[in-house]
Design a protein around this nucleic acid. Structure first.
Length: 466
RNA sequence: GCUCCCAUCGUCUAGUGGCCUAGGACACCGCCCUCUCAAGGCGGGAACACGAGUUCGAACCUCGUUGGGAGCGCCA
C-alpha cells in the first residue's frame, strides 16, 4: 500500500511556522517512502475561513516548494458526502439525534465540573429512541463506546491509551448542517486513503475519539505521529502578537525558503551532529519516528545563521531571482547598475538576510542619498584624503574595469603616496558610499562602474574642500 | 477541576546502563587575520530539574516531587 500523508490547514489565516513544519514533515515522510503528499483545506468553519487565507497558504506552500501530488481537497465541496455518512451512521444505530440547546449543554458542563469531573455530555438522547423531529437545536452525536479503552501506537509519543469512560458522545453534525472537525477528518482521511496522519500534538486528545469513528465506519486506522509544539523564545506559545509567525513574513524579512526548511527540520529532529541538510539529504534521512517528544523553542538567531550559510554557499545565480524580488520591494531600479548576482557575491559575507542585502545594495544603484557626517569629517576632511581621491580619479579613469586592475590601482596609490591601506580605503569608501562601511574597496569601486565612480570622487573632493 | 503529554548547556540537540571528568551547532566571550563591516581560523565559559530506588555501575530503567504544556466546543 502506498504511503499517503496530508497536510490539512484550516484557512483562518496565513501559513505559520508551526504549520510549515508539519507540512514539511508530512512531505518528507511521503517522499522518503515513495508515497504521496496531499493537501486538504479544512474550511468547514464558515465563520472564520476566507478565500484570502486559502490563497495565502497555497502561495506559501509553493514558495517553500512543498508541492502536493494531487489537487487540494476542500471540505466545503464534500458536504453531501459527510451528510450521507452521518445519516448512515444514524441508520446503523451508531449515531443519534440530540436536541439540547447550547445553554443546556453549558449547564451540564458546569455541573460536571462542580462535581470534580471532566465536563462531558451525559448521553441523554443516546438510547431514548425518540422520533426524529425538526428542531433548531438538532445535532447528530456519535455513540462512543462506553467500555474499554482505545490504544494506539503513536510514532513519536509511543503507546497512548485512553479510557472510553473519558470520552463522551461528540457532535459529528452541527445544527447548522455542517460536519464537525473530528468527523470530517475521519471521513476525509478514509476517502483520501491517508495512511499516515502527521499533525500537531494538540490533536493527541482527539485521536481516541477519531479512532472510535474509524471503527464505526469500518475504515482502516492509519498510523499517527503527533508533533510537539513550537514555542517562542520565552517558551510561550507562538502568537502573532509577539512574534513573527507567518512564513511569508519571513520571506519579506529576507529569509530563503530552504534556510527555513533546514531550520525547521532540525527543530525537534536531528541526524547526529549534522546541521546542514540539502533537500535530498532531508528526504533520505528524515524519519518521523525519530522526532523528539519535547516542545522546542523557535530561535531566530540560528535561523539567521542558516540563512547566511545558504547566502554564502548557494550559486548566486540561483539566488538572484529572490534577491531581485527584494530589490524591487526596496524600490531599487536595477536597470542601471551591476548584475544582482555580482552584488550577492559582494555582500553575502556581510548580511544575514536578502532584505538587508537589498538595502545595502542601494549604493550601487543610485546616487548617494545622504552623507554620513561623521564619516565625512573623519575620512574626507583632510589634505591626504584629497590627494588620494585625486590620484584615484586619475588612475581609475585609465584602468581596465575589472576587479584585479582596480585592486592594482589601490596598491599603486598606497605606494605612490606612501600611505597605509587604511588611509586609502577609507576616504575612497566614504567617497563611493557616503559611509564608512562597505565591501572591500576594490569591489565596491568595481561594482559602481567607472562613470559613477569618477562622478562620486569628484563630488567627494568638492565636499572635502567645501 | 479532570485526562493526557513532556523535562541534557541561554537555545536546537547527540546520548538508549559502562566509550560521558556528557559531544556538536547557534548565541556569547577572548585571540588571530584585516582597508571598514563582515566572513574565516583558533580557543573559552556554559547542561543531565530534584529526591528515592534497581544495579558492580545510571543522563540513560522504576517510582515520587517540582516545573512546563495540551485537551476537556454545535473551532479546527
Amino acid at each position: 500500500m502506498t504511503v499517503r500523508t496530508r497536510f490539512a490547514p484550516s484557512p483562518t489565516g496565513f501559513l505559520h511556522i508551526g504549520g510549515a513544519r508539519t507540512a514539511l514533515y508530512c512531505w518528507l515522510e511521503a517522499r522518503r517512502r515513495g508515497g504521496e503528499f496531499l493537501l486538504r483545506i479544512e474550511d468547514t468553519d464558515r465563520e472564520r475561513s476566507t478565500d484570502a487565507a486559502v490563497k495565502a497558504i497555497l502561495e506559501a506552500m509553493q514558495w517553500l516548494d512543498l508541492n502536493a501530488d494531487e489537487a487540494p481537497i476542500y471540505q466545503t465541496h464534500r458536504l453531501e458526502r459527510y451528510k450521507q455518512v452521518a445519516l448512515d451512521l444514524v441508520a446503523a444505530g451508531k449515531a443519534y439525534y440530540a436536541y439540547e440547546s447550547k445553554d443546556q449543554i453549558e449547564a451540564m458542563r458546569e455541573a460536571a465540573m462542580a462535581r470534580g469531573e471532566k465536563p462531558r455530555y451525559n448521553g441523554y438522547y443516546r438510547d431514548r429512541n425518540e422520533p426524529y423531529r425538526d428542531d433548531p437545536n438538532r445535532v447528530i452525536r456519535f455513540k462512543n463506546p462506553l467500555e474499554g479503552s482505545v490504544v494506539f501506537d503513536d510514532k513519536v509519543k509511543g503507546t497512548v491509551e485512553w479510557s472510553n469512560a473519558e470520552l463522551d458522545d461528540l457532535v459529528i453534525f452541527r445544527s447548522d448542517g455542517w460536519p464537525t472537525y473530528n468527523f470530517a477528518v475521519v471521513v476525509d482521511d478514509i476517502d483520501m486513503g491517508i495512511t499516515e496522519v502527521i499533525r500537531g500534538d494538540d490533536h493527541v486528545n482527539n485521536t481516541p475519539r477519531q479512532i472510535n469513528i474509524y471503527h464505526a465506519l469500518g475504515g482502516k486506522v492509519p498510523e499517527f505521529a503527533h508533533l510537539p509544539m513550537i514555542l517562542d523564545k520565552e517558551g510561550k506559545k507562538l502568537s502573532k502578537r509577539t512574534n513573527s509567525v507567518s512564513v511569508m513574513e519571513y520571506r519579506e524579512n529576507g529569509f530563503l525558503p530552504h534556510a527555513i526548511l533546514n531550520y525547521l527540520v532540525r527543530l525537534g529532529w536531528s541526524h547526529g551532529d549534522q546541521e546542514i541538510f540539502s533537500r535530498e539529504e532531508m528526504i533520505a534521512l528524515f524519519d518521523v519516528a525519530d522526532v523528539n517528544k519535547a516542545a522546542s523553542r523557535f530561535d531566530t538567531e540560528k535561523l539567521l545563521w542558516l540563512n547566511q550559510h545558504y547566502l554564502k554557499t548557494d550559486d548566486p545565480h540561483t539566488l538572484a531571482p529572490e534577491f531581485e524580488w527584494h530589490l524591487a520591494r526596496a524600490g531599487v531600479d536595477i536597470s542601471k547598475g551591476p548584475a544582482p548576482a555580482d552584488v550577492i557575491v559582494a555582500l553575502r559575507d556581510r548580511v544575514q538576510t536578502l532584505k538587508d542585502m537589498a538595502e545595502r545594495a542601494k549604493i550601487w544603484y543610485g546616487p548617494i542619498i545622504e552623507w554620513d557626517d561623521k564619516a565625512v569629517a573623519k575620512h574626507l576632511k583632510n589634505e591626504s584624503a584629497v590627494q588620494v581621491l585625486q590620484l584615484a580619479r586619475e588612475l581609475l579613469a585609465a584602468c581596465e574595469w575589472k576587479p584585479e586592475p582596480i585592486h592594482h590601482v589601490i596598491e599603486q596609490i598606497a605606494a605612490t603616496l606612501e600611505l597605509g591601506m587604511g588611509k586609502i580605503a577609507q576616504p575612497l569608501r566614504v567617497a563611493m558610499t557616503g559611509t564608512q562601511v562597505s565591501p572591500s574597496i576594490d569591489h565596491t569601486v568595481f561594482l559602481a562602474g567607472r562613470d559613477v565612480s569618477l562622478k562620486r570622487i569628484d563630488d567627494a573632493v568638492a565636499l572635502a574642500r567645501g
